[in-house]
């Protein structure tokens, strides 16, 4: 039996009319809760809006709707909830930029004390609130193994306030605070933090990375995380047309290329150990990914690579491929 018969038409599409309803994705179902509803004010083609709906819909499904969402300040909060509106169709709390993990810890503790252990807690924020402003609270939440799934939607800068650099901004990227000036324009090499690896260093039960180009994978990871207790961390790459200088229609293409070039590895880890990675299906050079983004435009001239720093970017991708066995055979 060949592949197409075993996995009828479109194994890589979001839905599939030929497979059993139970096996289709949540996003393909008309029963998805649409946690983030129409009318939100995210830009055209916003990766974060898409990622957040997928994550929260999956968590709602996994908890049978018994979910409280704690949101840090950032794009996601601003575009979804201008007073007195809200696009959220779930219990939702917002406090400050830096304290979402601490608020979530409190929510989880309160539910436990009230004997409502079935009500689960999900905290979420952008890369600014996660890797910079709220990192102290997050590290504490990890260290105490509080029963929270924390989700970071990483668009690699402070997009809401005008595209300033964060500690998740990749090297060479242009932001408002890393301009394309000097002999090495854009963000400096050798800076920033890798939050999934930092989360793993806390030995928490579950750490995973995901992105909006592979919604099956994203949903599976949220579902798995919600089947566990304790501190869990999910890092979701969400392309940002505004901050990356990309076409709104390229949001998913870019997420896919980030994975396929190796710069953004998809993997899972339990208790500090990597347990598996999603293999690259169509390996591409980093140029394919970078070239579609104006924030890297200074690395190219007339479509040709002109900056030797591209080789350093490629080396980062190659290191990920080795470290997470991204070109190897599927373990299971």
């Amino acid at each position: 039996m060949n592949n197409a018969l075993r996995n009828p038409k479109g194994i890589y599409t979001i839905g599939n009319r030929l497979v059993d309803q139970k096996e289709r994705t949540i996003q393909s179902s008309t029963d998805r809760c649409n946690a983030l509803n129409c009318g939100h004010r995210a830009c055209q083609g916003c990766g974060e809006a898409l990622g957040a709906r997928c994550v929260v819909d999956a968590a709602m499904r996994a908890t049978n709707g018994q979910l409280i969402v704690v949101n840090a300040t950032g794009c996601l909060e601003v575009f979804s909830t201008p007073y007195p509106e809200t696009a959220w169709q779930t219990a939702w709390v917002h406090s400050l930029f830096g304290n979402a993990p601490a608020v979530a810890t409190g929510v989880a503790a309160a539910m436990k004390i009230k004997g409502r252990g079935e009500v689960r807690t999900l905290a979420q924020g952008g890369d600014g609130s996660t890797t910079d402003i709220g990192f102290g609270c997050l590290s504490g939440m990890f260290e105490r193994n509080d029963d929270v799934l924390y989700v970071c939607y990483d668009n690699q800068a402070y997009m809401n306030t005008g595209v300033q650099r964060s500690s998740a901004t990749p090297p060479a990227a242009r932001t408002a605070t890393t301009p394309t000036m000097g002999h090495e324009p854009g963000n400096v090499f050798g800076t920033g933090k890798n939050l999934p690896l930092l989360a793993m260093a806390h030995q928490i039960p579950y750490v995973a990375t995901a992105t909006v180009s592979d919604i099956q994978d994203l949903e599976a990871k949220v579902t798995k995380a919600m089947s566990m207790r304790g501190a869990r961390y999910l890092h979701v790459l969400v392309p940002c047309p505004l901050g990356w200088g990309s076409l709104p229609r390229h949001t998913i293409t870019l997420a896919r290329l980030a994975v396929q070039c190796g710069l953004y590895p998809l993997f899972e880890a339990e208790n500090g150990e990597v347990t598996g990675s999603t293999k690259i299906r169509q390996h591409v050079p980093v140029e394919n990914y970078l070239q579609l983004q104006k924030r890297f435009a200074h690395l190219f001239k007339n479509g040709k690579a002109v900056d030797e720093r591209l080789a350093r970017m490629q080396a980062m991708a190659d290191a990920n491929i080795r470290r997470f066995n991204l070109l190897g055979v599927e373990e299971n």
């Binding site: 979001i14 839905g15 994705t25 996003q27 939100h40 809006a49 898409l50 709906r53 909006v212 998913i252």
Partner: peptide
Amino acid sequence: CFECDNCYGVCPDNAIKKLGA
């Protein structure tokens, strides 16, 4: 269209209605 649900799934604005098989 062969109803793969991609459009329905990828819309960041939940602006696509799925009408059924």
